[in-house]
Amino acid sequence: MSLSGLGDTGKAEPPPALFPAPESDAPVPARRRGGAPRNGPPPAQDDEAGRQLVFFGAEAAEPTVADLAGLLAGPGEVVRMGGTARLSVQVDAAWRVHVLVAELAARGLAASWEPTEGERHAVRTSYTRVLKPLAAAWLHGQALRPPATFHLTGRRLRLWLAAAGTPEPPDAYLLRLGANDQECWEPIGVALAAAGLAGTLLSPNEGGPAYRITGRRRLARLAELVGEPPRAAPPEAWPT
């Protein structure tokens, strides 16, 4: 089963029909460079500084393959075959399939999907040389581990949220991790803190593995970094 990234499948089987197929949701180039304001009223000011263009926000740079490190920070997996690699991720909702396929298409990567157990869906790329550097940076034998230079940008966080972000009302948001990637959990927490999103690590026994981001200021920071919600995402699923 393959998706074009444009909300349809041509002659292929239709995407998971848990909602009407959205319009194209491929990211568009940034339109607010140089600190240009958003449309509408200016955002509120906080105690420390006014809300400004976030230089590492999702809208501050063009999409690149390196952004896919955000999927590996969450439950994404990458495997190598010869001089190629393939990235895959299992998600729990159909809207995530649409968003991720569009994000992959925006980076020149065709993606396919298939239903899996427990009403989940697997999204994966083809094997391609384009993903070889990502695999080389993250794979140590068969184990997944972030490179020493790993950091979280807005676009990486946006992909992580699209794959495995879950709101936890009234004032928390969960960023789910790979269940078998324990070596990743601590360095990813360090990267979150460096991005102004210090969170609490939840163990599998506590409903994780996941990082819980709490507090209005951190949630506002998260919303600022990841940008506007994708068209396919339910309004309540995205931080605002």
Rank of each mutant, 00 (worst) to 15 (best):
L6K: 04
T9A: 15
P15S: 06
P16L: 05
F19I: 04
F19E: 15
A21L: 12
A21V: 14
A21E: 13
A26M: 14
P27I: 06
V28S: 14
A30N: 13
G34T: 12
G35W: 06
G35A: 14
A36V: 09
A36W: 10
P37V: 08
P37M: 15
N39T: 13
P41Q: 14
P42H: 15
A44N: 11
D47T: 10
G50S: 15
F55G: 13
G57Q: 08
A58Y: 03
T64D: 09
L68K: 11
A69K: 04
A73D: 01
G74I: 08
G76V: 04
V79P: 02
M81A: 15
A85D: 01
A85G: 08
A85I: 06
V91Q: 10
D92M: 12
A93N: 02
W95F: 13
W95H: 11
R96Q: 12
V99Y: 01
L109R: 09
L109K: 12
S112P: 01
W113N: 03
E114K: 14
P115M: 08
R120T: 12
H121G: 01
H121D: 05
V123G: 07
Y127G: 01
R129D: 11
R129Y: 06
A135R: 03
A135Q: 05
G141F: 06
R145N: 09
P146T: 10
P146V: 07
A148L: 11
F150A: 08
H151I: 02
H151T: 09
G154L: 06
R155N: 00
R158S: 11
L159D: 07
A162D: 00
A162N: 03
A163G: 08
A164F: 07
E168I: 00
P169E: 07
A179P: 11
Q182I: 12
E183V: 13
A193C: 03
A194R: 15
A198N: 09
L202T: 06
L202D: 02
S203P: 02
G208L: 09
T214V: 07
G215Q: 02
A220L: 05
R221E: 03
E224V: 01
E228F: 01
A232T: 00
A232M: 01
P234Q: 02
E236F: 02
T240M: 00
